[in-house]
Design a protein around this nucleic acid. Structure first.
Lengths: 221, 221
DNA sequence: AAAAAAATTTAGGTTTGCCTAAAAATATAT
DNA sequence: ATATATTTTTAGGCAAACCTAAATTTTTTT
């Protein structure tokens, strides 16, 4: 069985991310946007992945992962998230600094390495951004968090994760005191632009835009 | 300043290894052999590396690293050896299992990562095979060990490193009790085939062939 | 349902790193 | 010193992963 290339793995990972939890078809253009390539290049790769049995592809119809493609995608995601835990917990990186490095480390091919790393880290269930880590068999628990945009005034919630992993976004959260596990209380929502004022950990009031609310995953307590 | 590719880094590393401590010219054929490619492919790459100012190359004359090429090579070697320490010390791999994984990890590009890893490991000076680890500035102490073949009957030496990193060789040493730091006493040398009988740590006598002796680095005490 | 717009695929190229076969340069042997 | 052998380079190609431009299919609008 031939190895999948770095690039093939990235396509599978991206298809997984774009198809969401419900396994929707992913379009060529969406993939082109996410991989920062052109649609024509995506078409080339889709043909190759289909030949390898990793995706279901019918011309003009978009793609889904096959069982075997999903296995590969989840393995890459598992590695990415475990390495992020290592970088933050062991090496002392900030959560805003680890994404790009983990993008590289996730393609190191060695099952034994991943399992030893997992054990060394104490079998973590979530990465530093709150994303769940698939187990060795590819089981991924979906914790079904809510977006902060769904929370009513007066409610208190726990900050559990982020959708956007961009360094600038994470640094903004750091400056606002919004870390994983923080208690957030929605004090007020501005009807005009949906910006909100939020009490963080009971002692600090901050204002966040809709753009920020849309990227915060929270849990009712 | 453009990045060097995975392949370019491997050529530079190989040139460094083949030119030895004295910086001899490396031939096209030697590189082809070490990189498991054909001489014609090596010539292509040498032209490219010369254009980038990483090697001194004159047709038919062999190559040496430039200062800038040596810097790259030492950085790759530093990363390789630090990752090997991580794999053995932190993840619990055997010294015979880490070479191939480190071959991949050594190309992960991030200076901060390397420095944090180095600090996390406690700034190790040697890797699990006894090879010295270059510092961040590319300084590499040459510990000037001897080969076991240079040791006389009756002498006691410390086992400090290996030249061959092949898993089969290292496993053979494991079975013989020859680990880094072991005390080896040369009891007898067979005149005919230069095989030797050796007392390991004062309590176990083993026989080793010339092929093994030639790959053991030792130090007088 | 036709026309217009958008999405996707095909066709034909590029670069990187490899290949084989043939030519040229260097080294070795007589 | 010439012939032979070895080493190295050149020439021409191939596969992976990308590109642009043009053609085709699907979707949307009127």
């Amino acid at each position: 069985m031939m190895q999948n290339s770095f690039t093939e793995e990235n396509y599978l990972k991206t298809i997984h991310a774009l198809s969401g939890r419900d396994g929707l078809d992913v379009s060529t253009n969406a993939l082109a946007e996410s991989t920062a390539t052109r649609a024509a290049s995506v078409t080339d790769m889709l043909k190759k992945l289909a030949d390898k049995g990793l995706i279901n592809y019918k011309k003009y119809q978009g793609v889904t992962l096959t069982t075997s493609g999903e296995k590969v995608a989840l393995s890459v995601i598992r590695k990415h998230r475990l390495w992020e835990v290592f970088l933050v917990e062991k090496l002392g990186f900030g959560w805003d600094e680890v994404h790009d490095i983990a993008e590289e480390l996730e393609h190191i091919p060695s099952d034994i390495l991943v399992e030893k790393l997992d054990a060394y880290l104490g079998h973590p269930r979530f990465d530093p951004h709150g994303d769940p880590i698939p187990d060795a068999k590819g089981n991924l628990l979906d914790p079904d968090y809510r977006l902060l945009t769904d929370i009513q005034i007066g409610e208190k919630v726990l900050m559990m994760g982020v959708l956007d992993h961009a360094a600038s976004f994470l640094q903004h959260l750091d400056r606002s005191g919004i870390t994983l596990g923080a208690v957030l209380e929605v004090k007020d929502i501005n009807e005009y632009d949906k910006s909100a004022s939020i009490i963080v950990n009971g002692d600090r009031t901050i204002f966040i835009s809709l753009e920020v609310s849309k990227n915060l995953l929270v849990q009712r307590r």
